[in-house]
């Protein structure tokens, strides 16, 4: 994969992630972690090769069919991509509104989720008024609110303290337990080590094998 006419950012990537699996993607900055996630959440297309999601080849799929695939994927973007003119509540409810759900069906769920990520008292706040960690938790709430089949998170614990980091991790584990496939790109080696989950390590755009480690006690 390459951006425009630039150099290849991912090369010879071949992997298959089983439904309901939980993986971390690690690697130094510029290794291609975000690019790999972009391929999966359909923000980029491979310059060669293909991507299959939910048993379908999404690379050759007509553009008109892609929104329905995207609705099955939750993403915590690296730069969060919160909408500054919408309240925390509106930002969180966004995927449900786009999917065409009625407000009466999800109002309470959204409120509960925001309370769970510690934003129960900031539901009407606009993102520019939130602290870095609060924004990150809001982005996570938006990504998981519609119980996606795949959850992709790009550095989801970058701006939160250790306790909140573990709390978020437990949320991901809970979603995974309910059947969601989780892929987290992170620099947080402590979190990776504690989890004992399989790791996809990228080095200069190529996948390197990593020996599995036992979870920390």
């Amino acid at each position: 994969m390459r951006y425009g006419r630039g150099p290849e950012v991912l090369s010879d990537i071949s992997l298959s992630l089983p439904r309901g699996s939980f993986h971390f993607v690690t690697g130094s900055s510029g290794a291609g972690k975000s690019s790999l996630l972009k391929l999966i959440y359909l923000a980029a297309r491979p310059s060669s090769g293909g991507v299959r999601l939910f048993g379908q080849d999404v690379t050759s799929m007509p553009a008109s069919d892609l929104p329905h695939i995207r609705r099955r994927i939750g993403v915590v973007f690296q730069d969060l991509l919160l909408l500054d003119h919408l309240s925390a509540f509106d930002n969180t409810a966004l995927p449900l509104r786009i999917a065409g759900h009625k407000a009466s069906e999800y109002r309470n769920d959204v409120a509960e989720l925001l309370a769970w990520v510690g934003l129960g008292g900031r539901m009407q706040a606009l993102p520019p008024t939130l602290a870095g960690g609060e924004k990150q938790r809001l982005a996570i709430a938006r990504a998981v609110v519609n119980r996606p089949e795949i959850l992709l998170a790009d550095e989801p614990t970058g701006n939160v303290d250790h306790d909140m980091s573990m709390r978020i991790y437990r949320l991901f584990v809970e979603l995974n337990r309910l059947g969601t496939t989780v892929i987290i790109a992170t620099h947080d080696q402590d979190l990776v080590a504690r989890s004992g989950r399989p790791v996809l390590h990228l080095d200069k755009g190529r996948l390197k094998p990593v020996a599995p480690k036992a979870p920390a006690a």
């Binding site: 909408l83 003119h85 919408l86 309240s87 509540f89 509106d90 409810a93 509104r97 407000a103 109002r107 309470n108 959204v110 409120a111 129960g120 008292g121 900031r122 539901m123 009407q124 706040a125």
Partner: peptide, 18 residues
């Protein structure tokens, strides 16, 4: 800072800034 917010009275805001 906390606020009182009743989800039952929430109305979706327009996607585009007004």
């Amino acid at each position: 800072m906390s606020e009182s917010f009743d989800p039952a009275r929430w109305r979706p805001a327009p996607f585009l800034p007004q």
